[in-house]
Computed example of a mutant assay.
Amino acid sequence: MTMADHACTGKCPVIAHRKPYYAELRAGRSYLWCSCGRSQRQPFCDGRSHEGTGFLPVRYTAQADGEEVLFCGCKHTSTAPFCDGAHSNLPGGYSDATDGADVPRPDLVSADATGVSRVDGRCFAVSPEHGADLSLRYALRTIVGPSLGAEHQSQFHLRLEDGETPILAAEGVDTILWIMAGNGTIAIGDRSFAVTAPCGAYVRAGEAFRLAAGTPLRAYVSACPAVEALIELAEMPAAFDAAWPDRVVSIDEEERTAMGPRWFQMLVDKRIGSTTAAQFIGHIPRSRAEMHRHLYEEALIIMSGEGIIWNETSAARVGPGDVIFFPRKHLHSLECIAPEGMDVVGLIHPGDNPGVNY
């Protein structure tokens, strides 16, 4: 998506606000979202400002008490009435942080003995191989999970030097893998797929998987919703959901989506069966994003480059292999300090669009 994608050939809506509007709704109540951008009651229609514009309000009826939504403020969304990230590609829609007085510059925290740097609230960065026994043929470490403060997803760091892993499953929930290094195969039920880093892989709830190393493998294994641990099975269940036969996704430059000066590519998402969680790869040029929040939990793997994760009262350095965990609605910013930029892989849940923030 580029600015050209939003060029108007006729009448255009007014950009009421470059970011979406956060709202908590009441079950059964209908809300009329302003599509023209002229309403004096943003983000809602005021009943008169759209007259003669050709734009009509969009009605949305809340499904539950306390339902949290982000109503589009730029009025260029393709998922009306909700934000789809289109504001980032409008003139003036994307903004990096500045060095002004309004930008927090808290002290950097140090990692503890386990490689974890704890910043604000439940946000943290972790170096998964810090202090690891590298003589082990196979190792699995929990790096994100309920006991560490996550509510919606878990992540495990997997290292396999040779041979095979045990048969693994996340009981009752989906599993999404990121193969960081190496090559080999992943068996899912009675099917087998080649994996060559870097790539993503998807295992549906009720299925199990086993990795076999051609060369030493490094992988990050996410479970959504969160589980405390992966379980080992004595035998591989035959279960494989053939309705979703494509399970391995590679990087494809043709699939990139612009987000201001940044870009991302969706990997594992609803196109291959994952409906509540999504995996993506993205590139961040040397810059610092403005402080923002998400309605989803996010675990971000640093593929290359170095940076700093900024919170309101603390910050931490991150580098290749590190993972950052962002709780829902947690104010933060990621700065890339590497001249060549930074490549990251993210896992969001619950959610399907990493371009949406507020």
Score class of each variant (00 low, 15 high):
172 G>C: 06
173 V>Y: 06
175 T>E: 15
175 T>L: 03
175 T>Q: 13
176 I>S: 11
180 M>F: 03
183 N>I: 00
183 N>P: 00
185 T>A: 11
186 I>E: 00
186 I>Y: 02
189 G>P: 00
189 G>S: 05
190 D>V: 02
191 R>T: 11
192 S>L: 13
197 A>N: 06
198 P>R: 13
201 A>H: 12
201 A>N: 05
202 Y>R: 03
202 Y>T: 06
204 R>Y: 08
205 A>G: 09
206 G>H: 12
210 R>I: 02
210 R>N: 00
216 P>R: 10
217 L>V: 13
217 L>Q: 04
223 A>F: 05
223 A>G: 04
225 P>T: 11
225 P>E: 04
228 E>A: 14
229 A>M: 13
229 A>S: 12
229 A>H: 15
230 L>C: 07
233 L>F: 09
233 L>N: 12
234 A>C: 07
235 E>F: 08
236 M>A: 04
236 M>D: 11
237 P>W: 07
240 F>N: 06
241 D>Q: 03
244 W>R: 09
244 W>S: 07
244 W>V: 02
248 V>I: 12
248 V>F: 07
250 S>I: 11
250 S>D: 08
253 E>K: 10
253 E>F: 09
253 E>A: 13
256 R>W: 05
257 T>F: 06
257 T>Y: 14
263 W>H: 05
263 W>C: 00
264 F>W: 14
265 Q>R: 07
266 M>L: 15
267 L>S: 10
267 L>M: 15
268 V>Q: 10
270 K>S: 14
270 K>L: 02
271 R>S: 13
